[in-house]
Design a protein around this nucleic acid. Sequence first.
RNA 1: GCUGAAGUGGUGGAAUUGGUAGACACGUUGGACUUAAAAUCCAAUGUCCGUUUAGGACGUACGGGUUCAAGUCCCGUCUUCAGUACCA
Length: 1002
Amino acid sequence: MCCNTFKFAVLISGKTMSYHFNEIEAKWQKYWADNQTFKAENNSHKPKYYVLDMFPYPSGAGLHVGHPLGYIASDIYARYKRHKGFNVLHPQGYDSFGLPAEQYAIQTGQHPAITTETNIKTYRRQLDQIGFSFDWSREVRTSNPDYYKWTQWIFIQLFESYYCNDANEARPISELTSVFEIEGNSSINAACDDDVVLFSSEDWKDFSTEEQQDILLKYRLTYLAETEVNWCPALGTVLANDEIVNGVSERGGHPVVRKKMTQWSMRISAYAERLLQGLDTIDWTDSLKESQRNWIGKSVGAAVTFNINDHDEVIEVFTTRPDTIFGVSFMTLAPEHELVTKITTEAQRGTVQAYVEATAKRSERDRMADVKTISGAFTGAYAEHPFTKEPIPIWIGDYVLAGYGTGAVMSVPCGDQRDYDFAKHFKIPIPNIFDGVDISEEAFADKDKTVIANSDFLTGMNYKKATKRVIYELERLGQGKGKTNYRLRDAVFSRQRYWGEPFPVYYVNSKPQMIDQQHLPIVLPEVEKYLPTEEGEPPLGRADVWAWCTESNSVVSNDKINHTTVFPLELNTMPGWAGSSWYFFRYMEEAAHRDDAFATEDALKYWENVDLYIGGSEHATGHLLYARFWVKFLKDRGFVGVDEPFKKLINQGMILGTSAFGYFVFYSIIDRATKNVILNKKPLFISKEDYNQTLTGNEELIIDVVKSYIDKNLLSKIEKEELHLMTPMSSTYIPVEYVNASDELDIEAFKNWRPEFKDAEFILEDGVYKVGREVEKMSKSKYNVVNPDAICDQYGADSLRLYEMFLGPLEQAKPWNTAGITGVHGFLKKLWKLYVDDNGIRVNDAEASKDNLKTLHKTIKKVEEDIENFSFNTSVSTFMIAVNELTQQKCTSTSILEPLLILISPYAPHIAEELWSCLGNNESISTASFPIFEAKHLVESSKNYPISFNGKMRFTLELPLDMSKDDIEKTVMAHEKTIAQLEGRTPKKIIVVPGKIVNIVG
RNA sequence: GCUGAAGUGGUGGAAUUGGUAGACACGUUGGACUUAAAAUCCAAUGUCCGUUUAGGACGUACGGGUUCAAGUCCCGUCUUCAGUACCA
């Protein structure tokens, strides 16, 4: 790129030398694209730095000003790191599989790929106009077959792996089969399904191929399992818990039932401990780590086995308080527990069955929400206490959840409030095993503050000792052992949707088979409708060409299925989190080298992992957990070199909208004489104050307000009862674009908005109607969405970027108010004027003054610290101060104004590039190095000391900094203002902190 | 309930180790320029008392405490937001 084109850009861009942001921004955006300024290299002598945004789902609504907040922050950081000499990877892409495109397809028949493509175009245009330094050559789209080929590939790797608890890592499944052949599974310590049985090598060899496949499936990291789901027959689909309200579907209000379905699951639970431990090695916020910790939900305790009287079966429970075992007075099973029907006595069968049926009707969410109601039923059966051998009644109760632990608890009412409440309700005894504790009102759950009593060999011990001892005793009896339990459950990986990754799976005799990875990708088939089939199969059940031919190794027509060479393919697709769990690795590879691997070894080795990741906190327990899981797996199997994907993570806060409201009343007037309607239902807009007052009961007020508005002549013709007010009064959203910075409404624009307000009238204050304001989430339905396109047109991308940062701390939620943007826009104009006046460039090689240098270096220091701390709002203030000071100082020296541009360039890159080239630089400012702070320019010789009396500052005094403590004290005490303050009193104490403050006490 | 974050002018927010509370902006008010508007520039702006000038009192959700000195540290209370929830 040659400089000459732009060197005299200012002179070309206008007659007026003023700041023409539209031209400047378009010009530099084109320059960056043409010159691939931000293309990252995989070979560089520079240190690497990888800055990533959570990639967007390209929705049809496009971007609003809230979306780019995180992107602007990461862009500033990326640009800053380039100035600091790093080879920066700052890519962007699209999470382009997802539900909205599919919903739209169902409604319109439009193929989701087309909708997605259109939306991506809009997104790209909107992103481009903000001037991000993305390396678009590395773009990814999760819905591209080139991309999801590797999502399918990772799925196959998971299928071909198991988790070895001894090695504490994933291993190839082939290792497992070798062991099975030699010695069976007795020595295997692996993550697996609960129902795995012991077998010998002879057994293994005797198993049929299918039996062997079934067993292996119980070990694989992705496996098929019967999962209970919320099935909605009317919609033909599975719903998530949040999609169900009061037992019916949120969409359409159709009934929902619990149904067992065979679905793919991910054995993420195998990684629970490592996911927990790994949190200590990464730089994330405490709140985020805490959510993941809670989600993983580790609890340490013991598994205890209780024998059941007159039955061979046993009940296994998990408890965190094995030390309270002598306080057990009953056992509670979840109503769904498999033993319930077996152990229930004839006498109790009716009651128990009724209870089980009643709970089955309630959704899991209802059960959890309704904590207060205590319910349950006695089975009639008794378990045997492992130590006292006394019989313990076995109850069922819905406060015990089938999905956690073993679905059964040993109930210790004196030590657990829920057990306590249950015991009280059903009049079960509550033995006290705590020394000197009153349990007449509630349970005592504090494990650290008491001594165990009435507990045989545990009596007199504290929690720690008793726990150790009881586990030892249980192990000796073979009735229990120490155990750690996790809340984290395996993740269901099947979705009954169209617009997702197809599985590389076909079925032989209902047993899943992986398609060889060399035949990937398995491309999503065409269907004529995107709905489930009439038989309740997923949308892929509608595809005609959706069978796998093992001879041609290709997808063929369904009518060729013969179950010998051609087999049916999997009909489910993968969930949204599949593609987003590894995309950060894909960016590492240049587009030209992406065919042979998801990323080559060299690329993975060079970029390692993401240094800085910015995105919303809503992904705390979804995407961020699954991505960590897949990365750990890929690391175990040697495909990547890192254990954690995101070293540092920042959650940007939400930008809220400032909704505008109008308040109005309808009134009608009837003529007294003729009874004719003079006016019918006319909307009259009143002030917010009058509206609020009327709402709080002052109804007379509104009649006066309306009367005061009506024409005097008209008013004389009517009486009170002929003025009809429609009550209650209403308020309406007003689109924010009709309101100016001072909350004044553009009445004409508003009247044209909705027919019902076409002839509305307004009670004006000082000639204007002022709207009410309220801060809410930004959304179309609240008419408070602010579009970045409009801001860029009116103020420019640099103003938008600066303003988004200036609004407040990055991580905090904050309201958007377009009015405030004039502040940063004015700043950019001032900045421009510092470089350009009516005669052109005013910058010269004048020597910098002391003040100039002080301002510059103060700014360098502050801005550098701010960027490192992600405190972008304060650096915008710092720029404003710097420009104000330099303007006042009438600074013209290149040695000051050139470095200043580099400081500002990460924030406002377009204006910085423009002025940079105007100063005669040939290369993009992004190649310039960050100015180096020199402390010597900030050295002061004196300090304006605040002089306080009893901690209250009364006046300030300029004193040399090298003055001694004693001299400061003497000078201050001799000062006339000090004498005046003291009014003759003698101070008790004088505190002098050199360089800081003087405080006189007394 | 639990976990985490927060509470400062009319508004967004600043105050890095305890050391001049309210930086920087918005808004508001007044003024300059203009036929007028926009734009631009200048001044004032926490509240209250006082005023010709001074000056003073109060003030960082609330109540205590530590300290020469607290927005900042400690104890208690309230409120808001986010996440999570019968986890044995």
